[in-house]
Amino acid sequence: MQAISFDVAKLLAGGLVLTSFLMLYQVRLPAVLNVLALHSLILALAVAWQAHVQSEPALYITAAITLIFKAILIPEALRRIVEKLGIHREIENVTNLGITMLAGVGLVALSLEVMLPVTMHADLLTRTDVALALSVVLLGLLLMVTRRNAVSQVAAFLSLENGIDLAAAGAQGMPMVVELSIAFSVLVAILVIGIFLFRIRERFDSVDMQALDAFRGDRR
């Protein structure tokens, strides 16, 4: 039983890392959002599995929030934004895909190298979850810096946040996981509303962050 529960947890956490890579080389916005939905779905499964293994019913709530909010509602809202703004076109990456992928592999290696030795005293389940969670966080950061489009930056931030949720769920017996995930969901919701509210398209005629940079005060 122990072996199976460990294997499944590892499979799901590994799946999350893999999906992060998948997101890394998507060049079209709708595809990025599809992968994001998949990413959140895998996270929901991983959290639910942790809830089952740790017999921690509160984690089921986190899994449910993840499923409804991040796997369905947020990607749908972002899809509508993309449609409304008419930005189905390709995303320009800052660096080319090959180098980005290589950097991603490096980051995963780095996080395993860093986290596995220091979590020696934690149990096996926590160890892999936290190490892989750090990979997802770092890949999310990489995504954020390689994307220049506001929508895909939000998607990247969501994937980063999924990594943190995975770590929180993997840390056994951590109090307030549900509260923290709710607080985080509020942050994300406001991010998405922010794109609407700030009417980035209308105001700047572009959701391209490079165009935004041009307005910086001192060069007025």
Binding site: A133, V137, F157, L160, L180
Partner: peptide
Amino acid sequence: ALALFGTI
């Protein structure tokens, strides 16, 4: 987000 990871 990074601060939360540190907190965990």
